[in-house]
């Protein structure tokens, strides 16, 4: 496991299908990249569990509510609130699959990760390996859930994969495979599929 992969946060709670990590607003800023739709991983009893960041929630507390209500939002207050207080940010992850004995599997792991484990962003190499070895079969999980915005997650996911291509390249070799998986899952739902392909077409154009 590559150690240089940056840590996003630490596990707060988990189920088989997903989990939530917590971090500080300040730490998120330090990561300096969009997080929605990013591939990430967490170690759990000999398995590496892979997931996609589905949501990021900045929580409030009594003080924040009070500050907003009073309209006290000078730059000093903002900075103080961000750096000196331990106001948590929660990041939700959908579990997509896991790796065991060196093999990638697009299924839910037997046990969820445990509390306080570190959630790391995947490195390009690891992320691509997970996608390609699974032939994007895990996209079904994203598309079939209703809790998070599936289309947005998939577009963000594709954009992350593309950001790993050497600059100026057109869509990587993973792209047809991703599109195929999407079409396979959604082809009986004309309306949803055509909206998704519209958005994906626009995204693909933006890579040129």
């Amino acid at each position: 496991m590559p150690q240089e992969a940056p840590i996003v946060g630490h596990l707060l709670r988990a189920s088989a299908a997903g989990f939530t990590v917590g971090t500080r607003a300040e730490a998120l800023e330090a990561l300096n990249q969009p997080l929605l739709g990013c591939l990430c991983q967490v170690e759990a009893q000999g398995q590496t569990i892979y997931g996609l960041i589905a949501d990021i929630r900045v929580l409030d507390d009594g003080l924040v509510q009070q500050l907003v209500a009073e309209g006290r939002m000078g730059s000093e207050t903002l900075a103080d609130n961000r750096y000196n207080r331990n106001q948590p940010v929660e990041i939700s992850v959908i579990t997509l699959g896991f790796a065991q004995d060196g093999r990638m599997r697009p299924r839910l792991p037997g046990t969820p990760p445990l509390a306080l484990q570190a959630l790391r962003l995947c490195t390009p190499e690891e992320g691509l390996r997970f996608c390609e070895e699974n032939k994007f079969a895990y996209l079904r999980r994203i598309l079939n859930q209703t809790e998070y915005p599936a289309q947005e997650m998939i577009l963000a996911h594709a954009d992350q994969l593309q950001s790993w291509q050497p600059a100026g390249n057109k869509a990587g070799s993973w792209y047809p495979s991703l599109a195929e998986a999407l079409i396979r899952v959604l082809r009986n739902d004309y309306e949803r599929l055509s909206l998704l392909l519209d958005a994906l077409s626009a995204l693909e154009e933006s890579w040129k």
């Binding site: 869509a171 792209y175 047809p176 599109a179 195929e180 009986n188 599929l193 392909l197 994906l200 154009e205």
Partner: peptide, 25 residues
């Protein structure tokens, strides 16, 4: 699979790569 797929030229709506995959499926 659905008449609506046949009733619209996919190459006119999506990128060539997507259109080709969609038609095939």
């Amino acid at each position: 699979l659905d008449e609506r797929y046949a009733g619209e030229v996919s190459a006119g709506r999506y990128t060539p790569a997507l259109a080709k995959l969609l038609d095939k499926a």
